[in-house]
């Protein structure tokens, strides 16, 4: 049946928010509207242009919609669009800018694990995984997506407050010639050279070197 709609103010700030290629469409409610606004979402692949409705985000009252599955091919680029409905009124379709999953995603810090001997600490870094539809699906490390992925590692001597920085492509690092029985704190960041992407630094992982064996 035909639905008669008068005009409603548009949803605002329609954009993709992406972390590790989990691509979620977000927006803000039309200005001045309280509860009761419903939304519909559609998306399109750039170059194909056909708009495809997202059934799970039809007549929803939340202001986000997970389009990770629909935008998982990071060799493509995408647009998404949102329309608002309230009391028989509807807004225009409001679009995102062109979304490129490869360059427009944010990357989480790496996982850091540390162990120590009396005079060295060993650091193992693990890059986050690309978003996947379900846990059973094969994991894809962001290392495979971004071959130019590197790690920036910071090592802090808690006693002297001296800090070292290392930039490595390998995922392991041994820091030698340290002082025994001393606490060191490690934090790491992912740095992708092409395209240019940086994660934040991980939280600090602290460990103490062991007693000097020679004494």
């Amino acid at each position: 049946s035909g639905e008669l709609y008068c005009s409603l103010l548009n949803p605002r700030n329609v954009r993709f928010e992406s972390i590790n290629m989990k691509n979620v469409l977000h927006w803000s409610a039309p200005e001045g509207t309280g509860n009761g606004v419903l939304y519909r979402v559609k998306y399109s692949v750039y170059g194909v242009g056909k708009w495809i409705r997202k059934p799970e985000c039809r007549n929803i009252n939340r202001t986000w919609c997970d389009l990770s599955s629909e935008t998982s091919d990071y060799e493509e680029q995408y647009y998404a669009s949102v329309k608002a409905f309230l009391n028989g009124m509807s807004s225009d379709w409001v679009e995102t800018t062109r979304f490129n999953p490869l360059t427009d995603t944010k990357i989480d810090p790496p996982m850091v694990s540390v162990s120590s001997t009396d005079k060295s600490i060993s650091i193992i870094l693990t890059a986050p995984e690309k978003w996947k539809r379900n846990p059973k699906e094969e994991s894809v490390s962001l290392l495979q997506v971004y071959p130019g992925l590197q790690y920036n590692v910071s090592v802090l001597n808690k006693k002297t407050k001296k800090r070292w920085f290392f930039s490595i492509s390998n995922h392991t690092l041994v820091v030698p010639w340290l002082e025994p029985e001393t606490a060191y704190c490690v934090s790491a960041q992912i740095h992708v050279t092409t395209p240019i992407l940086d994660s934040g630094f991980s939280k600090e992982y602290c460990i103490a070197t062991l007693k000097d064996k020679t004494k």
Binding site: S44, Y46, G47, V48, G49, K50, E75, E76, Q77, Y79
Partner: peptide, 13 residues
């Protein structure tokens, strides 16, 4: 504003 055509990616990436 043309979404239905890509210079580089159409029809194949």
């Amino acid at each position: 504003s043309i979404r239905t055509l890509s210079i580089l990616s159409y029809p194949h990436s």
